[in-house]
């Protein structure tokens, strides 16, 4: 439905969007995930027609969007900080797109009512935008973007400014809502939790290029490279030399699955694969820090003369900061990544 071919945007000679190719199918929810500066917002702006492409093409329903101004593209965009019109009330904001499309007053009112009910703010028509809480503003912005029934709805950091619990609740609501409406969605976020919870398909971006794409499960299980691994929060990434079923790493010889590529590779040891054993066995480490993560404790370990390691362990097993422990590795949680280590 949406198709990008070699989409390129340069700011002062630097490619912010570098030959990006992307397909979004009808009714699909695609989430672009990347750190700030990776070009994900520019991607949305290019599709919306707010950013001119230096090269490449964008097609919507097979139609080339080149030269079509933003207001004639029929796509919706929900801005990062909502950008509600401060001088209009809630109804005025939601009805804005309908007015632009020449809907009658009566139909506008009906649609506004319908949408406000849909986003959980029934009867909020007359409220001033300034009186809304962050979550309510987000709902109004969503209703406003949905009102003209855009062929494609784009969300720029949709939940970025909200507090965590609200975010977690809204992301579920959004997914249910989009499924119910059959909306095609292209969202961008820097929050992996948000992306994995919302998307049918995740696209990880880095420096204007697509680093990896796949379902949340695929991305999570088969990390494309060291960048994606680190961006998704994995710390234990290192260069290694594999021979047979052992890899030579700064942390010593690690067991790897038997079908592992031989030679110079980049290895990821998932935190679950770092097992704590009594001091004196395995790799000797000092506990540098521990962070309570709700379901488990993340323990940062400092081996002698090697990079730090992160381990996940149950609360009752977690050692104290400063303790001496030993570390053993679990071959099943060791993954070979593409790309170069240290990035």
């Amino acid at each position: 439905m949406l198709k990008l071919k070699g989409a390129t945007v340069r700011f002062g000679g630097r490619a912010v969007l570098d030959e990006v190719g992307l397909d979004v199918a009808e009714h699909e929810i695609v989430c672009v995930l990347g750190p700030s500066g990776s070009g994900k917002s520019t991607l949305l702006r290019a599709v919306a027609g707010l950013q001119h492409l230096d090269d490449g093409r964008i097609f919507l329903d097979g139609r080339d969007l080149d030269g079509v101004p933003a207001h004639k593209r029929g796509v919706g965009l929900m801005f990062q900080d909502h950008q509600l019109f401060p001088q209009r009330d809630v109804a005025g904001n939601v009805a804005f797109g309908l007015r632009m499309h020449g809907e009658s007053k009566q139909r506008q009112a009906l649609r506004v009512e319908e949408l406000l009910t849909l986003v959980g703010l029934p009867g909020a028509q007359g409220r001033a935008v300034a009186s809304l809480s962050g979550g309510e503003q987000q709902r109004v912005a969503l209703a406003r973007a949905l009102a003209p029934r855009p062929r494609l709805l784009m969300l720029d950091e949709p939940l970025g400014q909200l507090d965590r619990s609200l975010r977690e609740r809204l992301v579920v609501e959004l997914r249910e809502l989009f499924a119910e409406l059959g909306t095609t969605v292209l969202a961008v976020t820097h929050d992996q939790g948000e992306a994995f919870a919302l998307a049918d398909r995740v696209v990880v971006m880095r420096d204007g290029r697509i680093a990896q794409t796949g379902t949340p499960l695929e991305v999570w299980q088969r990390l494309a490279d060291a960048f994606v691994a680190r961006f998704l929060g994995f710390e234990n990434v290192t260069g290694a030399t594999v021979s047979g079923e052992a890899a030579d790493t700064p942390w010593g010889k690690l067991p790897v699955p038997s079908d592992t590529t031989q030679g110079e590779v980049t290895l990821l040891v998932r935190p679950a694969g770092v097992r704590l054993v009594p001091a004196g066995e395995g790799l000797r480490c000092t506990v540098a820090a521990r962070t309570f993560r709700g379901t488990h404790v993340a323990v940062r370990l400092q081996p002698e003369g090697a990079p730090r390691l992160e381990a996940a362990c149950a609360l009752r097993d977690a050692p104290e900061t400063g303790d001496e422990v030993g570390v053993a590795f679990d071959a099943a949680e060791i993954v070979v990544l593409a790309g170069v280590a240290g990035l």
Partner: peptide, 17 residues
């Protein structure tokens, strides 16, 4: 804020609107 203008444009407002 320029993005308010963009928000209006994406909702279908021509430059004059």
């Amino acid at each position: 804020d320029g993005r308010l203008r963009e928000a209006a444009a994406v909702l279908g407002a021509s430059p004059w609107r």
